[in-house]
């Protein structure tokens, strides 16, 4: 597939317990590509992300970013956890600058960096609000803003819309698709929602049950930008059915 941004090379990881978690997970991500990782619940998706994000050392294997070894390094990845984790003692603006401040940037400078993103993220006017004043969808957008403003090469999104109601969720997916096109992010997304994976991705990596490895790479050949009507198209349904079948294959 030519150019690669990220190489996940044969990652292995065990915790004390009966089964290893990662059993040689390997796949690539191209620059500007949106790749979703799906798998049966408990297969180790979150462990995989923790290892990629540099939060958890692998037992074996490597993570390469732009050809360089990035195993155990946090700085190539901007990580967005499942919960929005907006802190009540900070305003929305100061929540979004947290990553920059933690990295040592002056607060004033960090604010200047984050402010222009409030408009495209649909948060204009809420800079000085407290997180509790935001709706669920706005909170997720603020959490994503906090993630992307760090300006790191790859975004790691761990089920970012899992806690939202289905209407807000679909709106957020359409919005995220638009933002991705606009800013040309390279994205790795964990989800257990097949429809979400198809709707957002260029490619879906399907993991098997624990000890997990990649079962299949499914390329999503749907035109961009994605529209909500596509969900009912035969092509979309066929992709959903294919992913569902791969997930359910006996090991």
């Amino acid at each position: 597939m030519g150019e690669t941004k990220v190489v996940i090379d044969d990652l292995r990881k065990s915790f004390p317990g009966p089964l290893p978690v990662l059993d040689g997970v390997a796949f690539d991500v191209a620059p500007g590509e949106f790749v979703s990782v799906i798998g049966p619940s408990g297969c180790g998706k979150s462990t995989l992300f923790d290892v990629i994000a540099g939060l958890e050392p692998p037992d074996a294997g490597r993570v390469l970013v732009d050809g360089e070894d990035a195993t155990g390094r946090v700085d190539p990845f901007a990580y967005m956890p499942q919960q929005d984790l907006l802190f009540p003692w900070r305003t929305v603006l100061d929540n979004t600058t947290l990553g920059l401040e933690v990295a040592g940037m002056r607060r004033r400078l960090a604010r200047e960096r984050a402010r222009p993103l409030f408009e495209p993220f649909g948060l204009a006017g809420f800079e000085d609000a407290r997180p509790r004043e935001l709706s669920g969808g706005m909170r997720q957008r603020a959490a994503l803003l906090r993630t992307v403003v760090q300006d790191r090469p790859v975004l790691l999104l761990d089920e970012p819309f899992g806690a939202l109601d289905s209407l807000t969720r679909t709106d957020m997916q359409t919005w995220l698709d638009g933002m991705r096109t606009r800013f040309d992010w390279t994205v790795l997304l964990i989800t257990h929602d097949i429809r979400e994976a198809v709707y957002l991705s260029d490619r879906v990596v399907v993991l098997g049950p624990r000890p997990t490895r990649v079962r299949r790479n499914v390329v999503i050949e749907l035109p961009r930008p994605r529209h909500h009507e596509m969900i009912t198209s035969p092509r979309f349904s066929a992709l959903e059915a294919e992913l569902d079948a791969v997930l359910r294959e006996p090991s």
Binding site: A53, G54, L55, V74, Y79, P81, Q82, L85, V102, A103
Partner: peptide, 18 residues
């Protein structure tokens, strides 16, 4: 402190003190 919050800060490169 939430384990995920700790991980978020670690992913940002925060030292233990930060």
């Amino acid at each position: 402190t939430d384990r995920d919050a700790t991980n978020l800060l670690r992913s940002m490169g925060a030292s233990r003190w930060r």
